[in-house]
Design a protein around this nucleic acid. Structure first.
Length: 481
RNA sequence: GGCGCGUUCGUCUAUCGGUUAGGACACGGCCCUCUCAAGGCUGAAAGACGGGUUCGAUUCCCGUACGCGCUACCA
């Protein structure tokens, strides 16, 4: 069987509307409901973000309601701040939810009528459901805990991605098949609350990490115990470290915050993430999440884990950043520069915009922006010459060249990129030298570095006054012979 | 140990039994060039292993190896 082949039963549609194989959905006029149910651990894991993304893509593709539920049963560890981190991460990625919390406050406002959307607020619901199982003889007290009467025969999971899986009891489970659903301290466990919430919230599709496949047998048994048809399941492959090991909290790039801090474009992150474990049938690699949502099919999701490749993510950032509207780039750039302490507000907005736009095509991470444009915002006599650049370009032989260049630029009629280029090349011809010996010292004189935006454009943006001042300053800084 | 899932270039992947096994990132070379890039051209690079089935297997089946997940009164 190929990776893209349909794992479904012969009679079931191979793709598109996996919900069509679910009578519950077919017969109902209520829309499908999809959910992302993170536990607030203090950070949003890249794998969790991708799970959220796939849920979002699928929900948007089929027009389902996307529900966000916070699984904060561990009161000690789950703080409001920890939940805020998740919400912030999802919002940054642009993954909006139709129902769920508005803030990280469990008792705060929420959207939707199936709440509360924090498990910490759903205690009475769980108690009622426990009693229901007990009344039916499907759960019983055991040493202070409550156990569920698990079925002993293999459970078949109809997974939309993996296909049919028959999950038999393990050796340990054979000895003790009835698993705990309420701990002796009174707290219901994950398997139980997860299923109860999915029932109460009317979840029709569960899209989650492959690490839950084995658990799904328990969940299905629980659904059956409640007399409810289980949702359609889709288990997506995991994201691994570059070396193939499991990506954990400490690993580089594990937290979404990394990408926020480094200044990646959210669309680049979602684009890259969507391609880790999914390929659109129609082909193509570069797209927005909205475009991805149009094409997203669970049947096209892969079955094997993928390793994370930061270089490729950077490439997607490069491609996306060059495509966004200049105004948007400027907006993001100004935010970043302010945050990193560059004094942009002392300059006219048009100047700042021009300065930033000159490097948009470089496609750099926003965090790297100061390296490329900080010279625009420094006093003319306070440029920090990169030592290597200075040693290489601001040498005695460059002095007469710079002096001549200053002369020409001082008397230039139009201080525009084309005129600046023409004047420099004319001077090179007149002096019988190549352009390089003029270009490099001029660049270092005006920017302090050997790399940067296009020289003539940068000069035009700086303007005659600054350029002449910088040339003077550089000429004075050239060591005597 | 048990129960599951997986295995195509370094990485992400295409391939619905017959292909010179294609693309992207990364890497090398050439061209272009005001720096760095970008762009164009180009190079190297893959079917884990062993059995079947078949006229023919990367593709279907079995086994082995390896990887991953689960195996909690964690989620």
């Amino acid at each position: 069987m190929t990776a893209s082949a349909s794992p479904s039963a012969p009679s079931a549609p191979s793709k598109t509307t996996s919900s069509a194989s679910n009578p519950l959905i077919l017969m109902s006029s209520t829309p499908a409901r999809v959910r992302f149910a993170p536990s607030p651990t203090g950070y949003l894991h890249i794998g969790g973000a991708r799970t959220a993304l796939f849920n979002w893509l699928y929900a948007r593709h089929i027009g389902a309601i996307f529900v966000l539920r916070i699984e904060d049963t561990d009161a000690a560890r789950n703080t409001q701040e920890a939940t805020d981190v998740i919400l912030r991460g999802l919002r940054w990625l642009g993954l909006d939810w139709d129902e769920g919390p508005v803030t990280g406050d469990p008792t705060g406002p929420s959207r939707g009528d199936r709440g509360p959307y924090f498990q910490s607020q759903r205690g009475t619901i769980y108690k009622r459901r426990i009693q229901e199982l007990k009344d039916r003889g499907l759960a019983y007290d055991d040493a202070g805990a409550v156990r569920f009467r698990m079925r002993r025969d293999p459970v078949v999971i109809h997974d939309q991605i993996i296909g049919d899986i028959s999950r038999a009891l393990t050796d340990r489970e054979q000895e003790d098949p009835d698993f705990v659903i309420v701990r002796s301290d009174g707290l219901p466990v994950f398997h139980f609350v997860n299923v109860v919430d999915d029932i109460e919230m009317g979840i029709t599709h569960v899209v989650r990490g492959e690490d839950h496949v084995s658990n799904t047998a328990k969940h299905i048994a629980l659904f059956e115990a409640f007399g409810v048809q289980p949702p359609a399941y889709a288990h997506i492959p995991l994201i691994l470290n570059p070396d193939g090991s499991k990506m954990s909290k400490r690993d580089q790039g594990a937290s979404i915050q990394t990408y926020i801090d480094d200044g990646y474009l959210p669309d680049a992150v979602t684009n890259y993430l969507s391609l880790l474990g999914w390929t659109p049938k129609e082909g193509g690699e570069l797209f927005t999440k909205e475009e991805a949502a149009q094409r997203f099919e669970l049947g096209d999701v892969h079955r094997s884990n993928a390793r994370f490749d930061m270089k490729k993510l950077e490439h997607f950032h490069f491609e996306h950043v060059r495509r966004i509207a200049p105004a948007r780039f400027v907006e993001l750039g100004v935010d970043t520069l302010r945050r990193l302490g560059v004094n942009v507000d002392a300059f006219p907005p048009a100047y700042t915009a021009a300065a930033l736009t000159s490097v948009q095509e470089k496609g750099k991470l926003f965090r790297e922006l100061p390296t490329w444009v900080d010279f625009f915002f420094l006093p003319d006599d306070a440029l920090n010459f990169d030592p290597e650049a200075k040693a290489k370009a601001l040498v005695p032989t460059a002095r007469p060249l710079l002096e001549k260049l200053r002369e020409r630029y001082a008397s230039l009629a139009d201080f525009t990129a084309t005129a600046l280029e023409a004047a420099l090349k004319q001077l090179a011809t007149d002096l019988a030298v190549k352009a390089g010996p003029l270009v490099q010292p001029c660049r270092v004189a005006c920017t302090g570095r050997t790399v940067g935006p296009s020289l003539y454009h940068l000069l035009e943006i700086l303007g005659r006054e600054r350029v002449l001042a910088r040339l003077d300053h550089a000429i004075a800084a050239i060591p005597a012979t």
